[in-house]
Design a protein around this nucleic acid. Structure first.
Lengths: 132, 132
DNA sequence: GTCCGTGCAAAAGCTTTGCAGCCTT
DNA sequence: AAGGCTGCAAAGCTTTTGCACGGAC
């Protein structure tokens, strides 16, 4: 069962910071900001609290779903489906993105490439869960 | 100027492996496969060759564009634009994905969330390059 | 012969974890 | 008082890098 959570000034402030910034901070950025108010805060605790906030759904982690990089041969555009059960990555046809993919710029930024990723539970993992 | 590249059995084989697999391997997986044929190959060399293959455009790296995780407060769906110049991440409205976002499954996989990322050079970085 | 590619080993960088004491409830 | 939260430090893991030697051109 899940632990009952308490409230901590550090964690509350972290969420405030994340909500008040336009940036998409790294753990270290948060650490530096937090240290202005809690000079003794530790980086380890920032990571610990981030993982709690992510688990609670208050924060999104913009990583790739696993701690190591993945590679694929470069053969055309496609989207990916990532299974949170087994970690497998499936290829999918690239959706059209309302024509974005053919545009040269977005909001004034020069567009070079796009990536689309879906997350969920894959067919095989869903089958396993049901049968057990 | 760029170094003139030679050809190496290890690197050629790495590309073959990447092209022959449906998976999206990690460096370690490649390392293990490669060791079956080149028992003395080193993990460091796998990384070195991967970076060469990526630079040559033969291979795509499925990372997030930077070596550390980024976080954001969870406030609704949006897409991201990532600048390869300054590393900044901008929010963009989420495109419709041809209705994918409202579907419950894709290819039999249970869909829970989606992510769209654009890559390129942001307005500010483009301006800097022009003026210098 | 040149100089790129390699293996080996060490280092770097981000993230996680064990522990003892503190603070919230 | 109970048990989550904290700082500190050490460890873990992926990735990078320096070096001398062997191999491709």
């Amino acid at each position: 069962m899940t632990k009952k959570l308490r409230r901590s000034k550090q964690r509350s402030r972290m969420l405030e910071l994340l909500r008040s910034t336009e940036q998409h901070p790294t753990a270290t950025w948060l650490y530096d900001e937090l240290r202005k108010e809690f000079p003794t805060v530790s980086l380890g605790n920032v990571y610990r609290n981030l993982s709690i906030l992510v688990e609670q759904g208050y924060v999104h982690k913009l990583d790739f779903g696993s701690t190591f990089d993945r590679y694929e041969a470069a053969d055309g555009q496609h989207a990916h489906f990532m299974c949170r059960g087994c970690g497998r990555i499936y290829d999918l046809p690239m959706p059209d993105l309302e024509g974005y993919s053919h545009r040269r710029d977005i909001d004034g930024h020069r567009l070079e490439s796009a990536r689309v990723e879906f997350f969920g539970v894959c067919h095989e993992c869903a089958a396993e869960t049901e049968s057990s």
